[in-house]
């Protein structure tokens, strides 16, 4: 096995990086892939909470890098998926506790055993970001349909190009289709026109995301929610499957009546 190292980053904070990592990881594990997530947000760790694993942390990534434990000891197995692991960040240190070459070494050690290594980058473009993209084979940028988030995404794309990484992919999170239709929100086409980065996922705004995050049960585990389906589609696209983008339009009652009228 030779794992793909996938880094999820954004520039701006609060756009949904950690949620994206948790959901893609769960979706990939659900498809039978061996997955390990690494929380790169040292000092402000979150991924453990979203995955519902915070009470099982013994060792963290800084312990591994500084030689206080072996990688295996820091890996927390998700009981829902026997092939999904988390290497948590340290909460009591800062980003400088780990260097880009530490991250490359760590990932190289894990590559042989996994299909996917997913790194949750912190917000910003400083050390934590550099640590997270250093080992990346594939980089995914998460952004929201807001000018400030798109501007930060553009900055990050520029930095990734300067590092001579492969062109990144884009996930557009928190689309509210009724606002787009009113012309009050940037559309997918608008964001693509600004960034010119290949879109690999479009995730609609979904209240269930917050509920799921609080419960520590990523949406992609359950079958129903629209954003859960969107994340599962992203996981399939990352594995090279062609999956059409889901229809975002929220049907009004009138549309539904029309369809019934036409259909029958």
């Amino acid at each position: 096995m030779a794992a793909n190292v996938l880094t999820v980053t954004s520039g701006k904070g609060g756009v949904g990086k950690t949620t994206t990592v948790a959901n893609i990881a769960v979706a990939l594990a659900n498809d039978g892939k061996k997955v390990v997530c690494i929380d790169g947000d040292i000092g402000l760790r979150n991924l453990d909470v979203i995955l519902g694993l915070e009470n099982r942390i013994v060792y963290d990534i800084v312990d591994v890098v500084e030689g206080r434990c072996r990688i295996r000891q820091a890996m927390i197995r998700d009981k829902r998926f026997p092939e999904l692991f988390l290497i948590p960040a340290a909460q009591t240190r800062d980003k400088n506790a780990v260097s880009p070459s530490d991250m490359i070494r760590l990932c190289d050690e894990l590559r042989a055993e996994f299909d996917w290594i997913i790194i949750d980058s912190p917000a910003g473009i400083e050390r934590g970001f550099k640590n997270s993209i250093a080992p990346a084979d594939i980089i995914v940028i998460v952004t929201n349909p807001e000018m400030s988030a798109v501007r930060d995404a553009d900055r990050v794309v520029g930095l990734i190009e300067a590092e001579e990484k492969k062109p990144p992919y884009l996930i557009l999170n928190r689309i509210k289709q009724n606002m787009v239709q009113r012309g009050d929100m940037l559309s997918v086409a608008d964001v693509y026109d600004l960034l010119r980065v290949e879109v690999i996922g479009i995730v609609p705004e979904d209240e269930n995301t917050i509920i799921a995050a609080n419960k520590g049960v990523p949406l992609a585990i359950e079958g129903k929610s629209r954003s859960g389906v969107a994340y599962r589609n992203i996981a399939k696209r990352l594995c090279g499957e062609q999956v059409p983008f889901m229809k975002l339009d929220v049907d009004t009652l009138w549309d539904k009546l029309m369809q019934i009228g036409k259909g029958n």
Partner: peptide
């Protein structure tokens, strides 16, 4: 011969 992105 490339696009200059934010921050460049």
């Amino acid at each position: 011969d490339k696009t200059l992105r934010s921050g460049a």
